[in-house]
Amino acid sequence: MSLICGRPPRTTPDPFFDGWGDSGAALALKHWNLFAHGACTTLELTAFALILGLCIAVPAAMALARGTPGAKWLISGYVYVFRGSPLLVQAYLIYYGLSQFEAVRDSIFWPFLRDAYWCALLAFTLNTGAYTTEILRGAIVNTPKGEIEGAKALGLSRFKTTWLIELPSAFRRALPQYSNEIIFMLHGSVIASVITIQDILGVGRTVNAKYYVAYEGFITAALLYMVLTFMIVIAYRQVERKYLAHLIVGR
């Protein structure tokens, strides 16, 4: 069960819109609470996955850019596997694959892995973690030499150089690419519906099944994803404007 959005509401139609017929927009309106729950679940999964993925990516990217050969080898393996295979299969591997083992079912992780929600979150986190690692690594490697030399000249310790100079500067450089990652994670989160989660697409399928229609639920889902995508794009532009202000003076 999802942490913030809770249990999906029942599929009883909202009485206010119930007289409006059984097709097209009326279906979406009658079940607005289902779609609201779906949107909540989608956003929740996407946001948590992105945050946790970032927690993986920051140390992983640092290690990849500046770490020991052993750590580099391990992390590039992780990045290669998760960027090189479909998210759908990764989710299947975690949801169906892990529950196959008695040891997993008896472990302390089972209360989490039992729930499709946590399986999806795990798959999404590992996936976006890999992509974000690659984005950040590129940004860290491209740190202008002068910034580090400047830090050295100021007598900053290695730790302080990393946290005060290198990372903030890398984050700024990674910002434009990371906006794509956010959108792709939002779109990738539809995989959750394939493993029984009632996200936007999941409730779309439920509505279709309830009314035996072919596409009304999908169209509503498509519109919702579009609205969310463009809301994120606009919000992100504000963030970029704030943190990259020094770069857009000329425009």
């Binding site: 697409l201 596409y215 498509a222």
Partner: peptide, 22 residues
């Protein structure tokens, strides 16, 4: 481009598979 940027692949596919038929 707007449709492609805004709608996830799986949603688009289900729409084409079930709705495109009609």
């Amino acid at each position: 481009t707007t449709i492609v940027r805004g709608v996830p692949d799986l949603v688009l596919m289900l729409l084409i598979y079930f709705g495109g038929q009609r």
